[in-house]
């Protein structure tokens, strides 16, 4: 990995952080829209949620690929699972898998809410607010761990 250019290293890192920031910011924004826009039609809310879902599942692949590339670019700096850095990486990867499971459930809820005529407005609003807020906070937690791993805090 010694022949990796600085520009490529910077590009991979930048794309990873930018994509993760869009995911976290988008989840918080969607949660805020679902939680506060009481007068907004449920169809509009599910459209906003659907737009986020398309963005999320497109960007999450980019985040994963660039994140793993970041790990590869660390080369000799990659420590074993018994070190404090390794434990933090285990927690981060576990949190990423949890986030994916949560997102699978969230996408199913959005897809069903959009395709059915029987909609319980208030319940759907509450559930959407909760799942998008959970997604946002989980993403922020993963981002915080990632920053610590990148800057040798552990």
């Amino acid at each position: 990995m010694a022949d990796v250019s600085y520009q490529l290293w910077f590009l991979v890192r930048y794309v990873h952080v930018a994509a993760a920031a869009v995911l976290a910011g988008g989840a918080m924004l969607t949660a805020a829209i679902c939680g506060t826009a009481a007068g907004l039609d449920i169809g509009v809310l599910t459209s906003v949620a659907s737009a986020y879902e398309w963005t999320f599942w497109s960007l999450v692949g980019i985040v994963a690929a660039t994140g793993i590339s970041n790990l590869g670019l660390k080369g000799e700096g990659l420590l074993g699972p018994d070190t404090s850095w390794g434990i933090a990486l285990s927690v981060k990867l576990g949190a990423a898998l949890f986030l994916l499971a949560l997102s699978f459930v969230r996408s199913d809820i959005v897809a069903r809410a959009r395709s059915t005529s029987v909609i319980h407005d208030a319940r759907v609003r509450r559930v959407l607010t909760a799942v998008y807020a959970s997604t946002g906070f989980t993403l922020l937690g993963v981002l915080w761990l990632g920053l610590g791993l990148a800057h040798g805090r552990y």
Binding site: W54, V60, G94, L100, F104, A111
Partner: peptide
């Protein structure tokens, strides 16, 4: 559609992360 896109991305990303993990 959204279901197909989300399922395929979920499987790809979770499998890759699980292998790295």
């Amino acid at each position: 559609d959204l279901r197909l896109w989300s399922e395929s991305a979920f499987r790809t990303v979770s499998f890759t992360i699980a292998v790295v993990f």
